[in-house]
């Protein structure tokens, strides 16, 4: 093989997980989860267009314990994918490739996703008057 000097992908079984590699696969996993979440978005819009009864059923499902649990998962996946997506766009522009910079931006993404998720839910529960 003449291309022996080409970089190799990390061999997952022998590669120690790092913040950069962990966040990288998390970007994919949250992307897949969010793609599944588009089912809920579509269902919500179709229910709204179908009329008050269908919409009440949808709101009931979304507002149930399981519904809220799923919604919480999707919201943190969304904020993570959004923040890490911006990190990717900065890389695409050619910045932040140094190891320390990538580690720092990674932890910033984790912090921002957690803060944004908790702030959104706090605001949501405040809207409901704590219900």
């Amino acid at each position: 093989m003449i291309s022996s000097n080409r970089p190799l992908s990390p061999h997952l079984q022998v590669y120690r997980p790092q913040i950069t590699s962990t966040l990288s696969i998390l970007h994919r996993l949250t992307g897949i989860a969010l793609a599944a979440g588009t089912l809920l978005l579509t269902y919500w819009l179709v229910a709204a267009a179908s009329g008050p009864e269908a919409f009440a059923t949808a709101q009931g499902l979304i507002g149930s314990f399981i519904g809220r649990l799923l919604l919480f998962g999707w919201s943190i996946a969304l904020f993570y994918h959004l923040c890490n997506g911006i990190r990717h766009l900065v890389w695409d522009a050619g910045y932040g490739f140094e190891i320390e910079a990538a580690t720092r931006s990674g932890w910033m993404v984790v912090g921002a996703s957690v803060v944004l998720t908790l702030a959104t839910w706090a605001l949501g529960y405040a809207m409901m008057g704590g219900a």
């Binding site: 089912l39 978005l41 579509t42 819009l45 179709v46 709204a48």
Partner: peptide, 10 residues
């Protein structure tokens, strides 16, 4: 199919 359903609902 999903995007068409969502757009038509809107």
């Amino acid at each position: 199919v999903l995007s068409l359903s969502a757009v038509l609902s809107v």
